[in-house]
Design a protein around this nucleic acid. Sequence first.
DNA 1: TATTTATCTTGACGCTGTCAACATAACGCA
DNA 2: TGCGTTATGTTGACAGCGTCAAGATAAATA
Lengths: 214, 214
Amino acid sequence: MKSPSATAKKRRSPPAKAGYHHGDLKRALVEAARALLEKEGVAGTSLRAAARKAGVSQTAPYHHFEDKNALLAAVAAEGFKAFEATTRAMMAKAGDDPQAKFLESGVAYVKFATQHPALFRLMFGSVVENPENFPELAAAGDRAFRTLVENMTAVIETAGGDAGKAPLFALSEWARVHGLATLLVDGGLDPKRYPAKSPEALARIVLGAAKPPA
Amino acid sequence: MKSPSATAKKRRSPPAKAGYHHGDLKRALVEAARALLEKEGVAGTSLRAAARKAGVSQTAPYHHFEDKNALLAAVAAEGFKAFEATTRAMMAKAGDDPQAKFLESGVAYVKFATQHPALFRLMFGSVVENPENFPELAAAGDRAFRTLVENMTAVIETAGGDAGKAPLFALSEWARVHGLATLLVDGGLDPKRYPAKSPEALARIVLGAAKPPA
DNA sequence: TATTTATCTTGACGCTGTCAACATAACGCA
DNA sequence: TGCGTTATGTTGACAGCGTCAAGATAAATA
């Protein structure tokens, strides 16, 4: 019995698209919102537009997300997954040297930000309200910071330093990387002032070479 | 018709007009918008609400600002003035040591951000669109960066380093300061992880002491 | 004083987020 | 199998937003 016939598709765990009820609106909405984000920016990303793009009515999203904020949080969470993936890939290319891995993770950070500026703002800016209500987001932040401290610990240990200061140094370096990414994304940096072939190249220069006098 | 009002608003000083038409709506709107910003955040700051607060109709602002974006730009420009003033004050307290002055300017940066988070976001985030159309904003950015490089040059020279690298080092340190401020303002930083009495204290620790192994 | 200009108001448009009420497909149990 | 329940979708409505068009009125000017 079950389905009358016609399209018998999988609808259990990976419910693609099947059936009348659109199949998997939730995912479709997240993807639509992400596409809007890339093309129109944060300001141009509306719940209604996402619904339109997914081919449903304007209030259909409310059966899958409590409100617009929840949709944005879901997009941000997906962004964090992509972010972690690319960071891992960049670090893998760097081999075993902790210092090189640390640098590459920073470059990956900046590269991701400049390649997906709106998504980056959504993830790290204050556009998602009450992010603590979205465990996926908090978990992503925790994971990111944990790896950061681990990397910094490795760097310090190979340099024969005091590993107890890893959290402090990690924060310091995180701030620098995050600041560079933010300045590039938000246009606080005049590119003419720092001619570099690409944001990635600039990141490599700044993060790798710049150690002003203490 | 409504009550033909009664409250005569205060007027402005020398070049201002002492007229009926509200006197100086432009300034009143900027102040209203700034108050809204502090109380309601960027999202809760609307042109109409600012007009309401100033006691005029919803379209009155269009005689003084091209659109909402222009009003926000004016608020941001005012923010930059306040920002420069507090930075100067903090640096003055630091005396003559370039290193100390540099540190204090960074601490002032972070302090300003955490004390006026919405204003900080307005100034440095991407909420004002096409900021290049507002010369006041560009000028403020230029001034800020120039002092930064000057300070860094002084720091390097007293340390006997290569002053040619001042722009690069300045960018590096600016990124760190800006990143720290941004992380604090946007909640990317879990305060439990870095127990400090205040953001200002945390800034002092991070900016002053954290020089991880190169 | 007459006219032009600056400023402010009313009214309207389409967009937004969200709610209430309703319709129907799918699921689960007798 | 049929039926009730739940999940998912729709239409319609509301207030608030940014902005435009037209009209009103005070102030400046000639």
